[in-house]
Design a protein around this nucleic acid. Structure first.
Lengths: 137, 137
DNA sequence: AAACCCATGCAATAGAAGTGCATTTTTATG
DNA sequence: CATAAAAATGCACTTCTATTGCATGGGTTT
């Protein structure tokens, strides 16, 4: 089991108190978080710091950025074996129209999509919207 | 061949000069347009009017709203036989990472996506990103 | 200890999206 | 045709997300 410090160091991210806290917050959350979620969780910290911390995490590929169609970017920790920095990685997310939460469906892979001649596919963003297990009951 | 007036009337949208112009603009454009694209094309008109016109078009299902992951909502005319108001309709769009344009791939359908037990799928948003035919050359 | 790098904090801004209200235009009705 | 009602347009303002410039401060290196 890797410690958070080791995860950060392995990606050349300096370990700071703030970064450990934000990492833990994302790790404990089962759903993708918005910046404003993170702000609410760390009211003492400055918004810019949170913004830049998350940005660093995204750039260093320990967090991936999710666009679920709400217009608000969400963030979630990458899986251990996540390859979201690789072009061919396939993201699949579920967005609940009721509770407005977004969940990574990591074990549901996306089928190969055909594109017309001359088009080159680099990434695929797939968001399924509907009711999550908690809201469909 | 249906006139624009007939299209609008068939959806219970009042025909106004502004609406005809915006419809024509979208019809001539081969790629999806942002509100700001439309603003640039109609600088004499007020932003609110453009905003509300597009909103009306979306509500009446003659335009569909595209979320291509740039964070900016784009709009494109529905096809004649477009069923985007129906829950099960499958949208597929291509976003070019180079020219930043978004294209509807209307004849490329989306395969059925499985979701875990308890989840109910209502809509699917699929955006393929990469290089379009013009930029890949 | 000094110099430096980088994280953090503060302030300000840009840009998209949305709302309330007044005014004008269009449609409906007598 | 006149007039009332309804809808469209225009203006001003607000909210929210995202982003940047600059100053400060803590930790690391030499």
């Amino acid at each position: 089991m890797e410690t958070i410090e080791q995860v950060l160091e392995s990606k050349n991210i300096r370990v700071t108190a703030m970064r450990l806290l934000i990492y833990k917050f994302l790790a404990e959350k089962q759903v993708a978080a918005t910046l404003s979620d993170i702000e609410k969780a760390f009211e003492k910290a400055d918004r810019t710091t949170l913004y830049r911390t998350v940005k660093t995490f995204v750039e260093k590929a320990i967090v991936h950025q999710i666009d679920d169609g709400t217009g608000i970017t969400k963030y979630a920790l990458c899986e251990q074996d996540c390859s979201c920095e690789i072009e061919t990685d396939l993201h699949l997310h579920f967005h609940c129209n009721n509770c407005n939460e977004t969940i990574c469906l990591t074990d549901h892979k996306i089928p190969k999509i055909k594109v017309p001649d001359g088009f080159i596919s680099e990434q695929i963003n797939l968001v399924v919207k509907g009711l999550c297990d908690k809201c469909s009951a």
